[in-house]
Design a protein around this nucleic acid. Sequence first.
DNA 1: CGTTAGGTTGACGACGATCAATGACGGTGG
DNA 2: CCACCGTCATTGATCGTCGTCAACCTAACG
Lengths: 263, 263
Amino acid sequence: MISTSSQFSNRSQGYRPGAAAFPASPTPALDCRDLETQLPEAKAGQRRELKPGESLFLQEDRIDSVYVLLEGWAFRYQDLKDGRRQIVDFALPGDVVGLNEAANAPYGIEALTGCVFACYSRKSFFALVGRQPAMGLALVQMLARAEARAIEHLTSLGRRTARERVAHLLLELVTRLNRLNLAADSKSLDLPLMLSHVADALGLANETVCRCLSSLRKDGVLVLRERRLKVLDLRRLTEEANLSEVEDDETAVTAAPVRRFAA
Amino acid sequence: MISTSSQFSNRSQGYRPGAAAFPASPTPALDCRDLETQLPEAKAGQRRELKPGESLFLQEDRIDSVYVLLEGWAFRYQDLKDGRRQIVDFALPGDVVGLNEAANAPYGIEALTGCVFACYSRKSFFALVGRQPAMGLALVQMLARAEARAIEHLTSLGRRTARERVAHLLLELVTRLNRLNLAADSKSLDLPLMLSHVADALGLANETVCRCLSSLRKDGVLVLRERRLKVLDLRRLTEEANLSEVEDDETAVTAAPVRRFAA
DNA sequence: CGTTAGGTTGACGACGATCAATGACGGTGG
DNA sequence: CCACCGTCATTGATCGTCGTCAACCTAACG
């Protein structure tokens, strides 16, 4: 192989030189976590706390509430009869679960870290959101981003190689965490993921994920160890991810992060 | 080959003997096509007609309208730079596209058959839907079904074998067409799909799809030839599909079809 | 008829799954 | 303190599913 690990610095500089001029973010600087801080009548919303590994609900459970994830990471998954598991997506603070589903959920939700959810009845959730136009807009845009992610995820599983899938998922998570201001800095952040989570999200075996990560490390793209991800070469990572033809500026790592109200 | 076409009848009988007692469908007997028939003020909605292979919009196009598919089949897809294509889902009459997306769509929509769409501005669409509670409910349930399909699709690509994927997709389409009363009978129906569509939807090569279909035919499960699908053994097909742990009754083939208003 | 698009089948190889062994780490109890 | 254990990460060896390449077939059409 080619020696790859000796020249990080010249790569990590200069990513997207033109990106300094990215447009001012048109997204409202709030998300559904702000229901509570914005609207006093939302205070009634009950809390639900989960420890890592606990479930918010199970596949087939009846869902009558809407949950806003306030803190922590969770994931949606679907199990097959033979024990195979597919992780559908990861939920980060500000994400809403239980919104679209009628009657019985076709999937379960499990906490990855300690989680805090705000619980609303469907009716009161919509009433609250409707009370503030900016909140409705934020919700619609959040759902649109979730759908875009779902489609990219589908494309990953259908048409990307193992290495591309791993790169793509990590890039997605870096992007989302940066948007939320949850990254230590824009290149280094904590991911509460085990290999098996990545594998179950990407339709791969643990060993394959491990090999891809080793190989990406060997090539100087990133380092993922002990729940900590360092992106060494963001441009390379973006190339490795093999994004769809046209990638929204919205989803670029450099997008303006959400500014929190009442921090 | 083995002769496969000689014994349909004994198989197609007797599927789910207990299913005669399936509950009365709680779903409202209408979908977004009924916006026009139900609400005179919706007549203003413009039409857009597409021939097979034409695009409603392309990946990256700016979407400002909501489209209700009135007739025909279409599909959403995403392309990678290297030319690989992933079909995200198929749209059937009554489905709505352009609803969730903010700004630029991360995918394109292409007509599979001749298609007729009703076009609404986002605002007027929501205004119309809001005018009739049953319509809002129908819309929410349609979206919930679409999401459930998306998750099953994701699970297919991530965790099902090629044969399972093919069986699963065909079962899904049979189910949807039956619900819409678009099947000649419940076991035989027209699918305007080429091998490449199935392959692109399932993340497989054309040849692999072809082999799976041959093998399913050899095993007496189904016959797909010349755009016509005959399900010979629905129970077997369901097993082959390797459904997720708990399958909603809602999605069973035997579910009550939508009753159309003002046919 | 020739041409083309799509479907079918075979041969072969590659990517990733599986199986297995080992290592690193943290917790627990002696 | 250290042996013991369980969990998870890592690496190697081997195997199988499915992708790729190629040839051929069929039907539609000009």
